[in-house]
Amino acid sequence: MVAIIETEKLTKSYGSHRGIVDVDLVVEQGEVFGFLGPNGAGKTTTIRVLLDLIRPTSGKASVFGIETTVDPVSIHRRIGYLPGEFTLYDRLTGGETLEYFGNLRGGVDTAYQASLIERFDLDPSRKFKEYSKGNKQKVGLVAALQHKPELLVLDEPTAGLDPLVQQTFFAVLREAVDEGRTVFLSSHVLSEAEKACDRVGIIRDGRLVKVDRVDALRDLAAHQVELRFTGPVPAAEFEALPGVSNVTAEDHVLRMHVTGPISPVVKAAARFDLADFVSREPSLEETFLAEYGHDAVEVANHGN
């Protein structure tokens, strides 16, 4: 696979304040990469270095194989960017704003632009300052998407969007990926990353602590298994199995946590008269909390 984003020992400090430290990251073409972490962990700093809005203190970053500090304009030509917080021209309408950003890129496919405006249910005739928070976010999203960039860099893209528009956004994102584009998405909403991302990287206190596929991360956590027997519960049979922990028995029900392959538990259960078998797959959020502790992330479920 072709690496679209690559960082090597990327460090940025703001005087005595920590920014990011030794971040090594590779994002491959065609994937949706989720960049997760609590507020202040270094997500936005990483993105700003990737876009050459700020310069690394040490280490280096490349996008499309181009070092960010060497030729940022060549990178910008091929990306779409939505900052986490932004403001645009108060006195321009949404439509005029999009036209201007399209012109800065040498023009865009107006039919595609119009389709995005329609799908996001944006009224382009209103002045930017008159928009609600969510509608301003829609303008930012269309500005980032309208030129069909090869790489989308989105910082907290669903902030302020209602659930219906969020659905539209994820559909548009999926279409972009289906067309071979790459997405770098920063978020602290784990359920959102779980839904949209192929791989995630977790940053905490400026350091990248984990990068893996979403399903592999999920496997890190214990499955919660519940076995209901018709007769007495053979607890001792299960406590000795590899990966099994926290075994509790109550009446005819046996509950346990299983880490790793679940087949030994299934085989052991088959030797008894089993009435019911329930295994619940952990969510990314549960995995994250189990792995990194509750204080590692401020989880916002947004109704999921």
Binding site: L53, P72, H76, I79, Y81, F86, F101, L104
Partner: peptide, 14 residues
């Protein structure tokens, strides 16, 4: 100062 520059510089504007 308003934060608009981030979006402008993410275009091919040096």
């Amino acid at each position: 100062t308003s934060g608009r520059l981030e979006m402008l510089l993410a275009t091919p504007l040096a």
